[in-house]
């Protein structure tokens, strides 16, 4: 059987499938289906310095082949995460990634410092949440913003640092390059695309926040394109995500340039998605005589 291990920024994952932030909580709910060690890693629900209540409902709307969400970073705060969730997660045999969001650079730095003192495996800088007024996206949509926040956090972060990019930008390769130049060890992409749905009978947006983040199969081709563009520009590894629900999608994103894959929305219809995807990827590797899953990364032969 082909080797499924991947190493991202010095962290070795048993396999390239990681749960995407915000879709998997802190893992407890999915323990009912399989051991969390089934996954190479878990990116935890986005956390902030202080507890956040999140946005008023409705927070969810379905879309053609996808969904919108505007949860608004509801979370118990970084201290609670460190005390209650992290110790437990660290006993589950999977790599743990803390996803952090802040209102100000100082907040990001304070969280990075706190988490650097724990045994969390990696920090994912969420500068791309479209659903809160100050959810970091203001740092994530310009090169100057990305450079500045990445460089500042870097000074306070002794853990491997992964910067999560927003797709709501004009030139994703520029943004990726800015993150790399400012000290990111890896990039994860893509976060959700800002979208909107309106109930034609009430003439109200379905989501109380008016707009929400689009995820699910609908965004897969955008993710493939953006990962490809970024991979052509930067040397640091890219963790790809956006609409992966079948093993073919995972292979596609890796061929585009991803070194590992996060899956999110797919959990909602199929909690067993990671098992099925891993199975399929392993078979594909064997059939195509790849010895290691790492050989897929960037193997697309573009025209």
């Amino acid at each position: 059987m082909a080797d499924l291990r991947v190493t991202i920024a010095g962290v070795e994952f048993d396999n390239p499938l990681i749960a995407a932030s915000g879709t998997f909580g802190f893992g407890r709910e999915y323990m009912e289906f399989y051991p969390l060690s089934t996954l190479g890693g878990i990116s935890c629900k986005g956390i902030t310095l202080k507890e956040r209540a999140g946005n008023p409902p409705p927070r969810i709307a379905e879309t053609p082949s996808g969904m919108l969400n505007a949860v608004g970073l509801q979370n118990p705060g970084v201290d609670h995460f460190i005390q209650e969730d992290l110790p437990w997660l660290k006993t589950q045999g999977t790599k743990v990634i803390a996803n952090i969001a802040g209102n100000t650079p100082e907040e990001y730095c304070e969280m990075a410092e706190k988490l650097s003192g724990t045994d969390v495996d990696m920090i994912e800088l969420n500068i791309s949440c479209p659903n809160v007024k100050q959810g970091g996206v203001q740092f994530g949509t310009t090169c100057a913003g990305v450079s500045d926040i990445t460089a500042q956090v870097r000074k306070h972060c002794t853990k491997p640092l992964m910067v999560k990019l927003s797709p709501n930008v004009a030139d994703i390769a520029e943004i990726a390059a800015a993150a790399e130049a400012s000290g990111a060890d890896a990039i994860s992409m893509i976060n959700t695309l800002t979208g909107m749905r309106i109930d034609i009978h009430t003439r109200r947006p379905i989501i109380r926040n008016n707009t929400g983040g689009l995820s699910g199969p609908a965004i897969l081709p955008v993710a493939v394109r953006m990962v490809w563009q970024a991979a052509n520009r930067v040397k640091i590894p890219i963790v790809g995500m956006g609409g992966v629900s079948r093993w073919e999608d995972a292979v596609e994103l890796m061929l585009a340039g991803a070194s590992a894959i996060q899956i999110g929305t797919a959990f909602f219809s199929n909690p067993y998605a990671p098992i099925e995807i891993l199975d399929g990827v392993a078979k594909y590797l064997e059939q195509n005589q790849f010895a290691s899953v790492t050989e897929l990364t960037g193997k697309v032969q573009a025209w």
């Binding site: 915000g22 879709t23 998997f24 909580g25 709910e29 999915y30 009912e32 629900k45 999140g54 946005n55 008023p56 409902p57 409705p58 927070r59 969810i60 709307a61 969904m67 969400n69 949860v71 509801q74 929305t265 959990f267 909602f268």
Partner: peptide, 17 residues
């Protein structure tokens, strides 16, 4: 009732006050 995604408490989509 509220609109749901995961149905098991992981996504925090189905909020009620």
């Amino acid at each position: 009732e509220e609109r749901m995604a995961c149905g098991i408490g992981a996504c925090l989509g189905c909020a009620c006050k």
